[in-house]
Computed example of a mutant assay.
Amino acid sequence: MAVKTIWPVDHTCGHHADRDLSDRPADRRAGFAEWLARQRCLYPLPHAPGQP
């Protein structure tokens, strides 16, 4: 079974980002992804095609 390294992060502003968390210990990736989602969104860039 493969270990998940790419985690979806849905910010409260509605921005979505898939983050590569392979540099973090496997047992801490889910918690870090949840923490990232609660942080202020730092992506005022135009959305990628297919994103709102």
Rank of each mutant, 00 (worst) to 15 (best):
Pro25Lys: 10
Pro25Tyr: 00
Lys4Met: 14
Gly50Ser: 09
Ala2Thr: 08
Leu36Gly: 08
Pro44Glu: 04
Thr12His: 08
Leu42Ser: 11
Asp18Thr: 14
Ala2Asp: 05
His47Ile: 06
His11Asp: 08
Asp10Arg: 02
Gly14Ile: 01
Gln39Val: 11
Val9Ser: 01
Ala37Ser: 15
Trp7Gln: 02
Val9Phe: 04
Val3Arg: 05
Gly14Ser: 02
Thr5Gly: 04
Trp35Tyr: 13
Pro52Gly: 04
Ser22Pro: 09
Thr12Ala: 13
Thr5Glu: 12
Cys41Ser: 03
His11Trp: 12
Met1Cys: 09
Leu36Thr: 08
Ala17Val: 09
Lys4Tyr: 09
Ala17Gln: 11
Pro8Cys: 02
Gln51Val: 05
Gln39Tyr: 07
Met1Ala: 14
His47Met: 14
Leu42Thr: 15
His11Asn: 05
Asp20Glu: 04
Ala33Val: 03
Arg40Cys: 09
Ala2Val: 01
Asp18His: 09
Trp7Ala: 02
Thr12Ile: 06
Glu34Trp: 06
Ser22Thr: 14
Thr5Asp: 02
Met1Gly: 11
Pro46Glu: 07
Pro8Met: 01
Leu42Asp: 12
Asp10Ala: 02
Phe32Asn: 06
Ala17Phe: 07
Asp27His: 12
Asp10Ser: 11
Leu21Arg: 03
Ala48Lys: 12
Ala17Met: 12
Ser22Glu: 12
Glu34Ser: 09
Trp35Arg: 08
Arg19Lys: 08
Cys13His: 02
His15Asn: 05
Arg28Asn: 11
Cys13Thr: 06
Ala17Leu: 11
Gly14Cys: 03
Gln51Gly: 03
Ala30Asp: 15
Thr12Gln: 13
Thr5Ser: 05
His47Cys: 12
